[in-house]
């Protein structure tokens, strides 16, 4: 798969790059390629989330964080052998775990046998929502979605309070920071 090869190339580039600004840009590219992979896998909603969060918001947030720190990454002081070993071992375990998964698109799996047929057949008469995923999220699991929304709303309020408190603590002219 061409896209996965490009993803791997971008990842190696991110790891090897010392200029953090370029790393942010490469991260945006990675998100767009990842979204393309999701589209090829026919998961358009996940791809949309990946593109909006990965390429949109996190690029902006990373740049805002980059404003507070240096642009060049510090040279590491220790050899990365142990983290490399841990990462490779985790990857091997994960790949080994995928051998037990059923192959893509098989109908006789527990995931497709349990409640999915009911949703697929009854979502229109039950909820009259044309999109099955939307009907599951907002009707069948409505309380679940309500809880998630509450959590996210609370987190947003907390972040807003933190930002506001910081501004009240430091009155007066804003300190100028060194550019780049």
């Amino acid at each position: 798969m061409v896209l996965l090869t490009l993803l791997a190339a971008i990842t190696v580039g991110i790891v090897r790059m010392r200029n953090l600004f370029a790393v942010v840009v490469l991260g945006g590219i990675y998100s767009f390629l990842m979204a393309s992979v999701m589209i090829v896998l026919d998961a358009v909603d996940v791809a949309m989330t990946e593109a909006s969060v990965g390429a949109g918001i996190s690029t902006v947030l990373m740049l805002a964080a980059l404003h507070l720190t240096k642009t060049e990454e510090a040279v590491p002081t220790h050899t990365p052998l142990l983290p490399l070993f841990v990462a490779v071992a985790t990857g091997i375990v994960l790949v080994f775990g995928t051998f037990a998964l059923p192959s893509f698109g098989v109908a006789e799996t527990p995931m497709n046998m349990h409640v999915a047929p009911y949703y697929l057949q009854n979502s229109i008469p039950d909820t009259s929502v044309p999109n099955v995923v939307t009907s599951v999220l907002s009707s069948y699991r409505g309380f679940d979605t309500l809880g998630e929304t509450t959590v996210i709303f609370t987190a947003g309020i907390a972040v807003l309070m933190l930002l506001k408190g910081k501004r009240e603590l430091k009155p007066g002219p804003k300190r100028r920071r060194i550019r780049r």
Partner: peptide, 10 residues
């Protein structure tokens, strides 16, 4: 085209 873009980005 994506491949060329990635090469340029790297």
């Amino acid at each position: 085209a994506l491949l060329l873009g990635v090469i340029r980005a790297l």
